[in-house]
Amino acid sequence: MDNALGEPQTILLLGGTSDIGLAIVREVLSPGARTVVLACRNVEKGELAAAGLRHGGLAVHVVHFNGSDTASHEQVIADVVAQHGDIDLAILAFAQLGDGAVTSKDVQAASEIAHVNFTGTVSATIAVANRMRGQGHGAIVMLSSVAGERVRAANPVYGGTKAGIDGFAQGLGDALAADGVHMMVVRPGFVHSAMTQGLKAAPFSTTPEQVAAVTAKGLRAGRRTVWAPGILRYVFSALRHVPGPVWRRLPLG
């Protein structure tokens, strides 16, 4: 159970090796936290991350999870609940960036990214949401991106999937509210992480730790959408309305 200060006891990170996801887990950990489950494709890498989280009375488990294998999602979630009880907080943090120059031309590469980022996220989220409906409580953090707010020419497949799950999460969040389940969409800008290593940083770039701080604060305040850094909310409320010919020429990285 969450406590009166909104501190979760059982945390599930889907995308268990995600830099941002792990930073969020560290940020929301409190003395009352009992269990963290890292669900990831690469279990060895997950174990390394788990070793970095373990302390005191906190149990950290790693389970195998493949975002693109949607047929397995319900079972993975069911197993987590069977072993650890209620999921207080689930963080949806698995996605692949892909090389925009390739995915915008290669049919196979594009559909693989679209499948894991969108279909996989939708499938895993529904599996989590069904459990939380039954629990009568819980919070879901959906890692969206400013890349989905107005999709850029540089990586339309990735941006398109983020636009899709952002809208999906908002709608599902409204549907879940009456069941005591809170959905929060997180829209980071360019984040310095393993996923973006070697890429040129965009303006207003941030770090996993900063995204995590914004996320934890938003959860405590019951927010439905947060941006990281916060200024991007205002930047994008302007960029959203920039005419196409201008938008295409903007140096957005």
């Binding site: 969450d2 406590n3 009166a4 909104g6 009568g136 409580h137 009456a178 069941d179 005591g180």
Partner: peptide, 17 residues
């Protein structure tokens, strides 16, 4: 009859029948 409940402190609502 599902509705959110809290204690007197009005924190941390959960939904029950």
């Amino acid at each position: 009859n599902r509705r959110p409940l809290t204690g007197w402190g009005r924190t941390n609502a959960t939904v029950a029948e």
